[in-house]
Amino acid sequence: MSAPTIYVDADACPVKDEILRVGERYGLAVVLVSNGGIRPSRDPMVRVVTVPQGADAADDWIVEHCQPNDVVVTADVPLASRSVSVGAHVLGPTGREYTPQSMGMALAMRDLKQHLRETGEIKGYNPSFSGKDRSAFLVALDRVVQRAIRTKQG
């Protein structure tokens, strides 16, 4: 079996550099998918895919190309759900792992927060991304990549 690939929902992803380092450490291909604005990489293991403008163009591309046991990094809960359903290992940029068991609650919380923002009950501010988030992500990505490699080999 081939090694897992890391797919990144790269628009506004705060952990691209960390993903590239982990991909290099394990010799894995990394695919950065965005609507534009990401420079091509000289690293042959890094591919930059620019999709047409559109609400879900990057999400659709990732779901069409990822395979079971690949790794997907996204802050987008619906994309996480779609990727989990394909059998991918999915992480948010803060290190939160999305699994078949956690997706229902993640989607429900996303919908609730969206409703509360729309009705003015809460403000639309997300907490700022911290060094602690970055560290948690690196630990989680390393763990998930090792699991994906073991699963692909087994």
Rank of each mutant, 00 (worst) to 15 (best):
M1D: 09
S2I: 01
A3G: 06
P4E: 01
T5N: 05
I6D: 03
Y7T: 05
D9M: 04
A10T: 12
A10S: 12
P14R: 03
V15T: 10
D17Y: 00
E18Y: 00
V22H: 02
G23H: 02
R25W: 06
Y26T: 01
Y26P: 07
Y26M: 09
V30E: 08
V31E: 08
N35E: 12
G37P: 07
R39N: 12
S41N: 09
R42H: 11
P44R: 13
M45T: 13
M45A: 15
M45H: 14
R47N: 08
A55K: 14
D56K: 04
A58G: 11
D60S: 10
I62N: 04
H65L: 06
H65N: 15
Q67E: 15
P68D: 12
N69Q: 12
N69A: 14
D70A: 02
V73E: 06
V73W: 02
V77Y: 01
A80M: 10
S81R: 08
S81W: 00
R82N: 07
R82V: 02
R82I: 01
V84Q: 03
V86N: 04
G87W: 06
L91N: 06
T94N: 15
E97V: 05
P100Q: 12
G104Q: 12
A106V: 00
A108P: 03
A108M: 13
M109I: 13
M109Y: 06
L112V: 14
Q114V: 12
R117Q: 15
E118R: 15
E118F: 02
T119W: 05
E121A: 14
K123P: 01
K123S: 14
G124K: 13
Y125L: 09
N126T: 13
P127Y: 01
K132L: 09
R134Q: 11
R134G: 07
R134T: 00
A136T: 06
F137H: 09
L138R: 14
L138H: 01
V139H: 10
L141Q: 00
R143D: 13
V145L: 11
R147Q: 14
R147N: 13
R147W: 04
